[in-house]
Design a protein around this nucleic acid. Structure first.
Lengths: 328, 328
DNA sequence: TCCTACTGTGTGCACGTTCACACATCTGAC
DNA sequence: GTCAGATGTGTGAACGTGCACACAGTAGGA
């Protein structure tokens, strides 16, 4: 910057004003802009960050093992939605995947080092040490998803898993199914638990514990395994709510192996409206997750706190409409 | 740091030596470490970056539209492989998706601002302005993939698309197929063009231009469309090399609709060994892409240049073994 | 005793910015 | 002619660190 000032015959202060706004004469501005172009000058971010006490960057923290990060159909969409919003506000998104203990230490250092001004936290479980760090640093942040007993000062954005599960189960029932089961995945997480609760509430007195197969993950293999379990427990089953589209795809595969047709013998619905939904035959009826919007809203919450605004609501649940296709 | 020095009754210099190594007495070290713990002190990265002229971060630059970034089955694996290697060396990976013009400007600023010490560049096309920036900044970098006429000083890592395509086509021929076609996707990119060339070379005199259906993208829908085209052109077709697993999955779908069985009527092979390969019925014979290793090697190249080492070879092609399953 | 080498420690400067303040000039009103 | 306000410009301090250098003490050998 000093070189630019010398080349343009002005002082550093004037160069700074050209870059950041302020009173500058037309002639000085022209001379400085010419010098900047000629020298190919770019402001040094580290120095600016140092004096401004900010980095113009927001962390996107994914608290998941690497493998799950790859499989989850929503994370990519959330990421891109957040990235678009942050870019538009001239913030850089920094991706942080926390898998091992070692990662936790590194990222704690990263967050504390003033490298990011805020954070979007995905897949948080309660009591994760990263959350404590974010809380104690008073870093503007937002959760994607809304597990209970997370940090109360940090807002969240997500969908109403419970209500959506209830709604799609009701729609499944309205197609005339009477023996309706569920393949419940990841019930140790809030999303999984809520979907199960919604299912139970929709069935009411029809609910039958033996028609719930619990599987660990939201994936294809677990879906197939869960479906086989259900078929064993009750061969007359005629409807299934799968906790995710991948689970539903696995279930369809298991049904095909067992010689059942979908939707004639068994109606099936999924969750996520991911690319799975249009790859299966028949295409899946499912709950649409607005991953893009979720990411965008989470980013927006962080940006608003960054601007010093108060966020009125503690949490935000976005609409997750049902998409009715051919599988039920 | 000043506060720590005061609390421990020493000077800033001594605190710095505790953090970065140097002669420090046991008593001083103990006092300083205690003070650090009590105050909860974390070094300020911006200040350190400023004086050290480095950021301990490496950019992961994806030159693709957002949508492609989501669909490409390899990018996630490459990303995680790179991330692991960088983390182990105490570098932070920063994710940069370049889609619009606006992104280009922002990321140019980011790269020039000293925010990253190096870069891994994925899906580069020739003459992308970002490449010019990286080249002129003399930023340690590595390409994933190896389009022609990229910057000659920047090493690349990838697989030998041509040889692998040739090999898997030969294996397909060895199953007794005689009318073998290809669904060639993204021939405007080096990977797509090389796969087509490999196919052509493997067929030799058997090659028939009319049995190549060109489609724009490596995806399911394009695969189905390409297969329908091929069936129209020659109903006696009995073998297909699909340019990717997603394309192969689409082709299988189209074959099913047309009442052909795989692999009895038509043998089909894919490329990538992505999760698609084990979702189709039958599972796909395909070329395994070691995405993880590719990312790790690219990161390693950048790290080595960061350490000032010379990288012997200009490029590195990793082995991409064929995985033989049931589709051919 | 003096010199040297080694171990520790404190101090000033530099990194490249932004910002507050002081100062200069110009315009128009009284 | 003077003063106020607007417009423009230069200067010094500060942000929090690492590093070079100066310096103090201590031990061992000539």
């Amino acid at each position: 910057m000093h070189d630019i000032a010398a080349a343009a015959g002005v002082s550093r202060g004037t160069v700074s004003r050209v870059l950041n706004g302020g009173y500058v004469s037309a002639t000085a501005r022209a001379a400085i802009e010419r010098a900047i172009r000629e020298v190919g000058y770019v402001p040094n971010t580290a120095a600016r960050n140092l004096v401004m006490q900010r980095s113009q960057a927001v962390g996107f923290i994914v608290l998941e093992p690497h493998s799950l990060f790859l499989e989850d159909p929503n994370i990519g969409g959330i990421m891109l939605g957040a990235n678009s919003t942050l870019s538009a506000a001239d913030y850089q998104m920094v991706n942080l995947v926390v898998d091992s203990e070692r990662d936790t230490a590194r990222i704690t250092r990263y967050l504390s080092g003033g490298f990011v001004d805020g954070a979007i936290i995905v897949s948080a479980k309660s009591h994760d040490p990263i959350i404590q760090v974010v809380g104690s640093l008073n870093l503007p942040a937002a959760f994607v998803g809304h597990p209970r007993d997370l940090h109360p000062d940090i807002p969240y954005v997500g969908i109403d898993n419970l209500a959506s599960a209830e709604e799609i189960t009701r729609r499944l029932l309205s197609t005339g199914r009477r023996r309706v089961g569920m393949i419940a995945a990841a019930v140790d997480r809030d999303s999984g638990a809520d979907r199960l609760t919604g299912f139970r509430q929709a069935l009411g007195p029809l609910f039958d514990e033996s028609l719930v197969a619990e599987v660990p993950l939201y994936d294809f293999a677990c879906g197939a395994k869960g479906m086989r379990t259900l078929l064993e427990r009750d061969p007359t089953i005629d409807g299934v709510f799968a906790a995710s589209d991948a689970v539903a795809a696995g279930a369809i595969e298991a049904l095909r192996e067992a010689g059942r047709s979908v939707p004639d013998d068994v109606g099936i619905v999924g969750f996520d409206d991911s690319s799975w939904a249009t790859r299966t035959r028949p295409n899946l009826s499912t709950v649409h997750q607005p991953a893009d919007d979720i990411g965008a809203h989470a980013a927006d919450m962080v940006l608003r706190r960054l601007r010093g605004e108060q966020i009125p609501q503690q949490g935000l649940l976005l609409p997750s409409p049902i998409v009715w296709r051919a599988s039920a």
